[in-house]
Amino acid sequence: MKTAVCFPGQALSPVTDLLQRLQQFAAANSTVEEGEKFIEQARSPLSERTIQQLGTFIASVASFKVLTDEMDLPVSLLVEHGVGMYAALVAARSMSFHQGLEIVVMAGDLLDEVADRGDFEMASIVGLSREELNLVCSVAAESGEVYLANINSPTHFVLSGHKKALVAACDGAIRRGAIEAKLLGIGTPIHTNILESRGRRLAKQLATVQFQNPAVPIVEHIYGQRIIECNILDLLSQQLFMPVKWTRVMDVVHRKGIDTLIALPPETGLAEVIEANLEDVTVISPGEAGDLEAWLGQLAGLS
């Protein structure tokens, strides 16, 4: 059996209950406690968006520790979706947990600068081809900037940009027969050129951080390549303004002969996206209800 672990991006609902349940495991308890203490003692007030992202980051790192330290599951490969890059780098021991917490806050502060303007959004479009989506976006661009932010599968995309343009894109997608076209309520134009200057600023803030070569191979979501020590800084910067090319990551998973892919909590809908790309891979996820116990039960069958 060859197993990969997937670190999710932004959770769309609070993870407080998940963090409490993870604390029943010795391997996860100290991580959750350290993360919660960090939030409580933050030097400046944190936005709800940043707190939510910190919760996702903490939950992913803690869940990974349950897999490896408590359940002793062998892991061949790590993959990450969007801001899941931060937790993957901690899991692979490329940076410390505390460094990861600090970077989440740095990135969150930069995103808040843009989000405070209140005119940005993200939208999920399912059921159109890339060519059909391009036509939709060309019309929607008359209402504002619109970018392709995520290529999750050949028919599942996420757009990012000005809210007015994304509303127009959703309307146009439905008219062309999309299965789903909805705003995500995220409020930031992440994974677009709008944030390039913020990404460059993040790189400057992290210039003195010493990263280590990943102890476990990580495939990143921008180019679908393996992360090495010398490109971590650039990837953390580009993560803010480059699109998520998830289909490239899935191609690598297929070529590596991975037969089991574990999607870490919290649930972000990522399991469905994985299954849309890899029919011959067993996907184990917490499910839409975020059922941690059921997820752990499935994992117990692997050990």
Rank of each mutant, 00 (worst) to 15 (best):
M95H: 01
K37T: 11
L233Y: 05
T155F: 01
I227T: 07
L110F: 08
V90C: 01
D69K: 15
N277S: 02
I51S: 14
L159M: 08
S13E: 13
I227D: 00
Y147W: 15
V32T: 05
D291T: 08
R49C: 10
H221R: 03
G257A: 07
G108R: 10
A294W: 01
Q225M: 11
E180S: 13
C6D: 08
I262H: 03
L184E: 03
K164L: 13
I194G: 09
A87S: 09
L54W: 10
A263D: 14
L292I: 05
S96M: 07
K204C: 06
Q10A: 12
A165M: 08
V253N: 06
V252L: 08
Q52W: 01
Q24W: 01
A87E: 01
S143C: 07
A149E: 07
P154T: 02
I262D: 03
V32R: 08
V139A: 12
Q210M: 12
N213P: 01
G301W: 00
H254Q: 14
P214E: 09
K164T: 14
A91W: 05
P74Y: 06
A300R: 13
V283H: 02
E34W: 00
A87C: 02
E33Q: 13
G199C: 04
S124L: 13
S303F: 03
L236H: 02
P286M: 04
Q225I: 03
L89V: 04
L233T: 05
T56P: 14
M122F: 01
V244N: 13
I103W: 02
V146S: 05
T192H: 12
D17W: 09
T56C: 11
Q239D: 12
A91T: 07
R200F: 06
R201W: 02
V104W: 09
F157K: 04
A107G: 11
S237D: 13
T56V: 13
Q10W: 07
S153V: 01
D291L: 04
F7G: 12
S129D: 03
V66R: 08
A28T: 11
G82I: 01
Q298Y: 04
V219M: 04
S47C: 08
N193G: 15
L159N: 06
T155E: 08
H254M: 06
L128W: 03
N213L: 04
I227A: 05
P266T: 02
K164E: 15
L19D: 07
I174G: 05
K164Q: 15
V114R: 14
V75I: 15
A42C: 02
D112S: 14
G177S: 11
A27C: 05
P214N: 10
G100L: 05
G82M: 04
E132F: 00
Q41H: 11
G84Y: 06
I274G: 00
W246Y: 10
K256M: 12
A173T: 08
I151N: 11
L235H: 04
A115I: 06
G100I: 02
G82T: 04
L184R: 00
D171C: 06
C137Y: 03
L73T: 12
A28Q: 12
T208C: 05
V252M: 10
S129T: 12
G84A: 09
H191P: 12
I284R: 04
D116R: 15
E34N: 08
E180R: 14
V209D: 07
